[in-house]
Design a protein around this nucleic acid. Structure first.
Lengths: 259, 259
DNA sequence: CAGGAAATTAACCCGTTGGATAAATACTGG
DNA sequence: CCAGTATTTATCCAACGGGTTAATTTCCTG
């Protein structure tokens, strides 16, 4: 259809000359047509690749589109990162790095155990909301049965501190009497992630089959309250108001009733 | 690489002649080379397509491979179903049809509310375990933002009875005093599906980052117990033995410790 | 048993796409 | 300011993959 090669955006800071190339080719020669910026270029490539892989999956992603959206030439991808799969793995590693890095700043150690859990849920939920590409990338990688992730050395090492962080919270909660039982921290984290991840990652199909928009503000708030109430009720044994409140909200307004 | 076109498997019931075609071509002419079987062919195509789409996603799926695995010619797909996207939608609709159909047989109405919930979790979990393609298909469709599902008329209509089924259980549970709160049935189902779905759908990456095999028998049993305990504890307010039991199992055996 | 419709096969078409090559241009150290 | 290197651009291409056309074979019906 449309030839992507002709769409390759010129590099940043091109001194506003590219548009007039036709009018004065001779003069253009004396001026800088592009600037070097390897680091910036690499970052823009990775960002564009993240969007592309998230939007279309590994097989559906187009190298040309990534280049175009990065304001680069296709050749640059191979020069700066490598082939399509290398690019994909770099994006994936970056995505894990980013979330685990933010999680490290959660500082759950200084909170009451129930508050710590609530904060973890709140963070996870909002992180997924803010970074929908992350969800899509994980799904893509799981479709590939983690083939690429297995090759990655970086990723494996960055998860044990995170698990330990949760384990500490659980242990403290049991000792303080806030929690009735000492759950396996990995199991607990998977459950928390599951509640957030599935809702958001599958919101498109769920919205269709249940006939309500699961992403609108009220629905999102309701969901967060539901998840916190669910997990805390199970851990502490005490019911919270929110869990009860969530009851009818989704069903009362008639236009949101599933047909 | 290898030319798929030459791999097209002959039709079923070819009277065992195909292997000897080279030896006696003349005689073969007098015998049936293939049999008509439109319904069977359609089914085999859909089954092969399901596997292919589940394994590679929409963009990654190869029409040639589907044809080959269906023991058919590529042209047959277009003859019996339509183009690639039609094929994909047919597969997707069939997948929804199948799970909702099995769910209808659950007969939760005649169980105690807590038992009914446990049974629903148990069924969902095992259905996902038995039908991993279903998970992959849903992920693929969500990557496409439910673009195809929205076009489907069949799918939307088959979910309201299911939601009503759950709503009845919840209402009965509240009336009997088994449940402390009347949760929104959609919210509850999404949570149950989430706990099962995410664990299985993402088991590949999770197994890598947490350094344990989440699909082995013990891990699966442990997970089911954890989920049932989590949901029932939140609904009933009573702790169950399993939730506590699950504590250390994942962490005690040293080889499963995340590094 | 003829003849036409339904089912199946074989071969081809052509735009797309990942990747490669070589040439041009900017920067840097001497 | 010059030579050499790093970065970027402009083309090119062979393989691939979805889809189509046309011929071939089986089955059904009158």
């Amino acid at each position: 259809m449309n030839n992507l090669r002709s769409q390759t955006a010129p590099c940043v800071l091109q001194l506003g000359l590219c548009d007039q190339r036709a009018t004065d080719l001779a003069k253009a020669k004396r001026v800088q047509k592009w600037q070097r910026d390897p680091e910036g270029m690499r970052l823009r490539i990775l960002e564009a690749a993240k969007q592309e892989f998230a939007a279309h999956g590994l097989a559906g992603a187009r190298v040309d589109r990534i280049a175009a959206n990065a304001g680069a030439n296709k050749r640059m991808l191979y020069y700066h990162v490598g082939n399509k799969e290398d690019l994909y793995l770099a994006v994936l590693e970056g995505a894990y790095e980013k979330i685990r890095s933010e999680e490290r700043g959660l500082d759950l150690e200084h909170l009451d155990p129930p508050e710590a859990i609530e904060r973890l849920i709140d963070f996870t939920w909002n992180y997924f909301l803010r970074n929908p590409e992350f969800l899509a990338l994980l799904n893509t990688e799981n479709l590939a049965k983690a083939r690429h992730l297995k090759r990655s050395t970086k990723v494996k090492s960055m998860h044990s501190p995170f698990v330990e962080m949760i384990r500490t919270v659980v242990t403290r909660g049991v000792e303080s009497g806030d929690f009735r039982v000492a759950v396996d921290p990995v199991q607990l984290y998977i459950s928390i992630a599951a509640l957030c991840f599935f809702y958001l990652s599958n919101s498109a199909t769920l919205s269709v089959i249940f006939g309500r928009d699961l992403l609108k503000k009220e629905a999102r708030d309701e969901r967060l309250a539901h998840m916190v109430a669910l997990v805390l009720a199970a851990l502490t044994g005490k019911s919270t108001a929110d869990f009860g409140n969530a009851v009818g909200q989704g069903t009362r307004s008639p236009e949101r009733q599933p047909v």
